[in-house]
Design a protein around this nucleic acid. Sequence first.
DNA 1: AATGAATGAGGGTTCATTCAT
DNA 2: AATGAATGAACCCTCATTCAT
Lengths: 203, 203, 203, 203
Amino acid sequence: MSTRPAGHKAIIEAAREEFSEQGYGATSIRNIAKRAGVSLSALYYYYKGKQELLVAILDDGLDAYFGACDTALQAAGDDPAERLEALVTATVRFRIEHPVKSSIVLTEGRSLEPEHLARYRKNEERGTRQFREVIERGLADGVFLTPYPDDARRTVIAMCNAIAQWYRPDGEVTPDELVERYVSLALTVVEYRPRSVRRAARG
Amino acid sequence: MSTRPAGHKAIIEAAREEFSEQGYGATSIRNIAKRAGVSLSALYYYYKGKQELLVAILDDGLDAYFGACDTALQAAGDDPAERLEALVTATVRFRIEHPVKSSIVLTEGRSLEPEHLARYRKNEERGTRQFREVIERGLADGVFLTPYPDDARRTVIAMCNAIAQWYRPDGEVTPDELVERYVSLALTVVEYRPRSVRRAARG
Amino acid sequence: MSTRPAGHKAIIEAAREEFSEQGYGATSIRNIAKRAGVSLSALYYYYKGKQELLVAILDDGLDAYFGACDTALQAAGDDPAERLEALVTATVRFRIEHPVKSSIVLTEGRSLEPEHLARYRKNEERGTRQFREVIERGLADGVFLTPYPDDARRTVIAMCNAIAQWYRPDGEVTPDELVERYVSLALTVVEYRPRSVRRAARG
Amino acid sequence: MSTRPAGHKAIIEAAREEFSEQGYGATSIRNIAKRAGVSLSALYYYYKGKQELLVAILDDGLDAYFGACDTALQAAGDDPAERLEALVTATVRFRIEHPVKSSIVLTEGRSLEPEHLARYRKNEERGTRQFREVIERGLADGVFLTPYPDDARRTVIAMCNAIAQWYRPDGEVTPDELVERYVSLALTVVEYRPRSVRRAARG
DNA sequence: AATGAATGAGGGTTCATTCAT
DNA sequence: AATGAATGAACCCTCATTCAT
């Protein structure tokens, strides 16, 4: 399908795995080439250097994640709980299905050189922002009752992110089950109280 | 307490900072020596090599953290909520007061060579275990109602750990306030329902 | 005149400038292509390699210089002083008008690989030869009195060549003035004593 | 005599020869190490890099040359002709006795990176200056009659420098003879007319 | 107890060049 | 006529480490 030459994708994939396993600093570009089944020079034909590989991988990681979030949010309605569910679902699924992309995005930002770091951090903030907006909306609507919205947000994000570290596909829990649990946990963290329930309680 | 000569501490401290800033793989042992104000030979006189430095730092990191946990738990009574509060308080404080130690312990375990890794991972598990025990006790006592104790535990740990990444001493929130918030959040996560409240509710 | 395609000239020109600025050894063939606005492959389509570029440039440099000498000598008569004047004029003008060609010819001969070096050095000697012939003729005619014809020749050549190193078109002295000075100096160096003067002195 | 470790001097010497033979750009630092009989790492233990080697060599070259000039000038009296003779003698001898140092100083200045270039060019100017001062003194005293002092100076310097390119110790002419010739030529170039001669001519 | 000297392996990167199309 | 892809060798340099003293 792709018109790009063969090496390209294999190189990125290999770099992703090496960076993820060893960390950027400890990864040798020779090993990346070897893993991609490509000569060292071929690698340099496609990428200017190690740093450019990292930039490409990080950008792609964020893009893929935000793409998944967008899709989920568009399918969700206006209800804050539904939107938070969408974000948590997208995030948990992404951590499960793309553990390598996840681990790099979550740990190797610091390996960016100053010239790329600022732009990347800015881009990265979108993750924070979309959770914040949903939570604030829930607070405004009176359906989220957490007294600490910032820390609740950090908690929800941190718990989803942590999945990338411990989840193994051969574990006991299915992805669907995990999504359900984390959605439930997230709603607990923001202290979700649906209107209907309260109305019922009142009535 | 230590019988080791003077240079020792400066070296460990320098190594900790370098590892924390650059990551183990990207850190040069020459820079550690330079930062410690010590000759390269002196460093090798005290330590067998880079890996031994990492082992020493990681071990010390865990020891310091577990020491803080022990102290907190001993001061706490038998009540699971009180014990969870003790653990969260100790963890949050440690993340705030020892950000460098924290960041290394949380990220550089993977840089251990196989011969040290197993032992370290084993040791590390104590963190998981002590949270698990407290939560299970709360469940058994009927004061924690979370349906997902494993994920609740991971959430509590993840949210405390994340503090090391974003907390800045010049921020708006005081350490004491932060501790209070995270204790509160943790109790929310495990769905703490104190007996007294329920008794009161019943009565 | 040339039947070669368009890119050709730009490549040679770019190579000349790069060689002149960085030296042959420090010049990258990629930079030459870039400077010429031509793809790397195009360069190799026209030229066999870096060494061939150097050969072409050096040959062209000598040809251009000797061409200028020939023209000047043909316009001059039989008088040794007049012929020396012609050579000095041609050399000075060439150094001024073709500083890049000059600097390469004067410094990059050593970068030739053995197979081209011998032929080139042979060709280069023509410069020495034509000065030597003129000076010997002046000695034979009794109008040049220098007791050290070889060193006088080297001096005249060296002083003309040096112009390529220090002359700047925005300097104080005009090309014509410079030519006049160097002709005068050259005649001084060979200790030129025109017959007429001596006859006048005698009479 | 030197308290420095063994490698030091051999490295500089090897670098000098390689730079002189191949040019800075075309010289490989591995070849320098090989030629010095030293490991690559040893080289880097003593010198920060290729550029530092060049700087050391160029500085040493200028120092040695200027040292020779100073000695010669101190032995000379006040007479401008005598001082010019001293300078020419020192320069010719230096070119003969130190052909390698000479060729590097005369050709590799351009290989200096910007940060070292300015200082070096400044230092280098002393060569020009000391010839200029002597020639101006001769003009002021009325013993040098050249109408083009700047170009006469450049000629004298260029002719001495050129010796480094063509002189071979196994040639026909002895160093002493060569010095004599070049002193004579230099005086010719500046159009030296000793007072005594003119007085004699007048008388 | 402490260090200056030295090493071999490997780091990231660029080189001149070739080849299939 | 012209080029994008790819290569292997070599580049300068830094690495963690050792050793004689």
